[in-house]
Amino acid sequence: MASIFTKIINGDIPCYKIAETDDFFAFLDINPNAKGHTLCVPKKEVDKIFDLDEATYNGLMAFSRKVALAIEKAIPCKRVGLTVIGLEVPHTHVHLIPLHTMEDARFIQKEKLSSEELQEIANAIKAHL
């Protein structure tokens, strides 16, 4: 069965898309730790990041870097943190989180944003790609 991320990639579930290539997809997390919290995923559905083939793994890191650089330009923050946890969805994904304090990296703190705010954030990040 397709993961929720595959359904997002296929357009079956709406998202706030940031970027897309033939192999990768980036979109805003709808339960963000901080404004601009973005997920980068390979289009190939693989559960664990270290089960990706080397080319896809390296491609995901390069794609995530480009998106992180755009986030830094669009969202005022001290830096963009990267984390891979992967327990909540069985589809490899990288979290890119704009950080102001270490609390922003904790997954118990969530921002509540309206759909308008999410769209504004997505547009701001896309403008820097």
Results as ranks from 00 to 15, higher is better:
residue 32 P to G: 05
residue 112 K to G: 05
residue 11 G to L: 10
residue 59 G to Q: 07
residue 43 K to A: 06
residue 61 M to I: 15
residue 106 R to K: 14
residue 35 K to F: 04
residue 91 H to N: 10
residue 57 Y to C: 07
residue 13 I to K: 12
residue 44 K to G: 04
residue 71 I to S: 11
residue 55 A to K: 15
residue 7 K to D: 06
residue 82 L to T: 15
residue 10 N to L: 13
residue 61 M to L: 14
residue 85 I to F: 15
residue 11 G to N: 09
residue 51 D to P: 00
residue 81 G to N: 13
residue 61 M to K: 07
residue 97 I to A: 03
residue 103 E to H: 08
residue 6 T to D: 00
residue 24 F to T: 08
residue 73 K to N: 11
residue 27 F to Q: 11
residue 94 V to D: 02
residue 62 A to L: 14
residue 61 M to E: 08
residue 36 G to E: 01
residue 55 A to S: 15
residue 117 E to P: 10
residue 37 H to E: 05
residue 28 L to A: 10
residue 30 I to W: 07
residue 3 S to I: 06
residue 35 K to W: 02
residue 29 D to C: 12
residue 24 F to R: 03
residue 48 K to D: 15
residue 124 A to Q: 07
residue 50 F to P: 01
residue 61 M to R: 08
residue 111 E to G: 05
residue 35 K to L: 04
residue 78 K to C: 07
residue 73 K to Y: 10
residue 70 A to K: 03
residue 42 P to S: 03
residue 120 E to K: 14
residue 19 A to M: 08
residue 1 M to D: 07
residue 37 H to T: 06
residue 127 A to Y: 07
residue 27 F to I: 10
residue 78 K to S: 15
residue 108 I to S: 13
residue 118 L to T: 01
residue 79 R to F: 15
residue 104 D to Q: 06
residue 45 E to W: 08
residue 60 L to F: 01
residue 13 I to G: 13
residue 71 I to W: 09
residue 63 F to T: 04
residue 24 F to C: 07
residue 9 I to C: 06
residue 79 R to I: 09
residue 7 K to G: 03
residue 55 A to H: 10
residue 42 P to W: 00
residue 35 K to C: 06
residue 37 H to P: 01
residue 51 D to G: 02
residue 15 C to P: 00
residue 14 P to R: 03
residue 80 V to Y: 11
residue 92 T to M: 04
residue 102 M to S: 15
residue 32 P to D: 04
residue 122 A to G: 01
residue 74 A to N: 01
residue 112 K to L: 10
residue 123 N to L: 08
residue 95 H to I: 14
residue 56 T to W: 05
residue 40 C to P: 06
residue 29 D to P: 11
residue 107 F to C: 12
residue 24 F to S: 06
residue 6 T to N: 01
residue 124 A to K: 13
residue 73 K to E: 14
residue 18 I to M: 03
residue 121 I to A: 03
residue 23 D to Y: 07
residue 49 I to N: 01
residue 86 G to A: 04
residue 46 V to K: 00
residue 103 E to N: 14
residue 28 L to S: 09
residue 106 R to L: 13
residue 17 K to L: 01
residue 57 Y to A: 12
residue 43 K to C: 04
residue 62 A to Y: 11
residue 18 I to Y: 02
residue 41 V to I: 10
residue 110 K to T: 12
residue 41 V to K: 01
residue 49 I to D: 00
